[in-house]
Simulated assay, not measured.
Amino acid sequence: MKIKGIHHIAIICSDYARSKTFYTETLGLSVIDEHYRAARDSYKLDLRAPDGVQVELFSFPDAPLRPSYPEARGLRHLAFAVEQIGDAIASLQARGVRVEPLRVDEYTGRRFCFFSDPDGLPIELYESPSGSDQDASAL
């Protein structure tokens, strides 16, 4: 088997409209497709990041909570590469998003920070001069 890359990341949200606004307007992901599945009382929104990686946003009634803090087993966070982290942080803060203090990756020297989506999913911004480095932090 030879993996070519990441195709998509799937996220289940508690409030579809709020999360759709966050991922499209706050983070700027573009909508590929959107479907309401009546049999599941569920939305599925396909989004695209500028590098082509897709994010699938799902809503399911009464989905259980998943612990994020303190660190829990499983997927730790979603990380997006940005060219100018200061500009990205300012954009988030202008939209009322609380951003954790800026940190420096001890191995690469690159700057990064964390914030959360509307359901508390940890999201990282990782500064990358090209905006799409593959060496993003695996913290």
Rank of each mutant, 00 (worst) to 15 (best):
K2N: 14
G5D: 07
I6N: 02
I9A: 12
A10N: 10
I11V: 12
I12Y: 02
C13R: 02
D15R: 11
A17E: 14
S19D: 06
K20T: 00
K20M: 01
T26P: 04
L29I: 07
I32S: 15
H35Y: 04
Y36K: 12
R37A: 11
A38I: 08
D41R: 14
S42R: 09
S42C: 12
S42W: 05
Y43A: 12
K44Y: 11
K44V: 14
D46W: 08
A49W: 02
A49R: 06
A49M: 09
V53H: 05
Q54G: 15
V55M: 07
V55F: 04
F58Q: 04
P61D: 09
D62N: 13
R66I: 12
P67G: 07
P67K: 01
Y69Q: 02
A72R: 01
R73S: 14
L75Y: 07
L75C: 09
L75G: 03
R76K: 12
R76L: 04
A79W: 00
G86L: 07
S91W: 06
L92K: 04
A94V: 05
A94G: 05
A94D: 08
R95W: 01
G96C: 02
G96P: 00
V97T: 09
E100A: 09
V104T: 12
G109M: 00
G109L: 03
F112C: 01
C113P: 01
F115L: 01
P118I: 13
D119P: 10
G120S: 04
L121P: 01
L121S: 02
E124V: 11
Y126G: 11
E127G: 01
G131Q: 12
Q134G: 15
D135M: 01
D135P: 00
A136I: 15
A136C: 13
A136M: 15
S137H: 11
